[in-house]
């Protein structure tokens, strides 16, 4: 029992003396709850519009400041295209690394047991709790200039990969873990006792069960990686056409006072993120429907 039901009991007791037999002067009261009147809906709409929608609308309009042609020119400028290509490629690599390593880590956390497992489990959430700029500095302290182990990833593509892998680590682990806990182990044991090898059991039984979770974790990691800025800003090096990611290119365009270019690449980045999330939603609703149809 928590304090909550007790509070409610006390409430009821306190009000117990005033049952419906004592009508209020205005007559029987309408049953009112803490609901939403039109005013509330209006306030919410206004708030969300000012904070979220209007800025994004202004951004979209600004990206078209020089017309559709100007927009196209801005996102196909060599520097812009290169930064988008680097962003998508590195994010795809990082997403793939996450798909494999995230599943493996989830497996070890659920099916294995060893001393200190709780600490390892808690460690997984750290990248979400850590500010992105701190992630950058933390990685630089080991893999940057004056590295104590002599590994220098500063201003290399590897630096980007490590930084993005750091900040996206929790996505796959945390989406696969609960599915693995719920998974029916008897089916796996049945497959094994029927002579299936470990690899076959994994491929035919475990992977299909975990598939949707791995996919959604990987997709979220990818969407996060393409927009990432703080974690790559120090370790990435910001070398145009080599390690400059799209967010750094956008920032550079603002600094050099080319707002249309900045807005256009921003919109391109947004569209990639939305497309990723849309594909994920379609896939997850499809797999849900398949599950419902299954006996």
């Amino acid at each position: 029992m928590t304090a909550e039901p007790r509070t409610l009991d006390r409430e009821a007791a306190a009000n117990g003396g005033a049952p419906s037999t004592t009508p209020t002067p205005e007559g029987p009261r309408r049953r009112r709850t803490v609901g939403v009147r039109p005013l509330g809906v209006g306030v919410v709409t206004l708030w969300l519009s000012i904070i979220v929608l209007l800025p994004l609308a202004a951004l979209t309009v600004a990206s078209l400041g020089d017309g559709i042609g100007g927009f196209w020119e801005a996102i196909t400028a060599p520097g812009a295209l290169a930064s988008l290509r680097i962003t998508v490629t590195v994010s795809a690599i990082v997403a793939a690394v996450n798909a494999v390593m995230g599943t493996l880590i989830a497996w070890v956390l659920v099916r294995d047991s060893f001393p200190g497992q709780g600490v390892v489990n808690a460690l997984i959430d750290l990248p979400f709790a850590l500010p992105t700029i701190v992630a950058s500095i933390v990685l630089l302290s080991l893999y940057g200039p004056g590295s104590p182990i002599g590994v220098q990833l500063n201003a290399t593509t590897w630096g980007l990969v490590v930084a993005l892998a750091f900040v996206t680590l929790p996505f796959v682990v945390r989406s696969v873990q609960p599915v693995l806990i719920e998974a029916d182990r008897e089916v796996e044991e049945a497959a094994a006792s029927l002579g299936a090898s470990n690899w076959t059991t994994f491929r035919r039984i475990v992977l299909p069960t975990l598939g949707p979770a791995i996919l959604s974790g990987t997709g979220l990691a990818f969407a996060r990686a393409i927009g990432e800025y703080g974690s790559v800003v120090l370790i990435g090096g910001n070398i145009p056409r080599e390690t400059q990611v799209a967010s750094q290119y956008i920032q550079q365009q603002i600094e050099t006072d080319r707002p249309v270019n900045a807005a256009a690449v921003s919109v391109a980045l947004l569209l990639i993120a939305f497309a990723t999330l849309l594909v994920l939603r379609v896939l997850s609703s499809r797999s849900q429907r398949r599950e419902e149809r299954a006996p």
Partner: peptide, 23 residues
């Protein structure tokens, strides 16, 4: 409204900054 509430999670921090400058 549901979709708008989730929108900030999908937007890159840099893009947030640019959008605010444009507004």
């Amino acid at each position: 409204l549901q979709a708008v509430v989730d929108l900030p999670f999908a937007v890159s921090p840099i893009v947030v900054g640019v959008a605010l400058i444009m507004l």
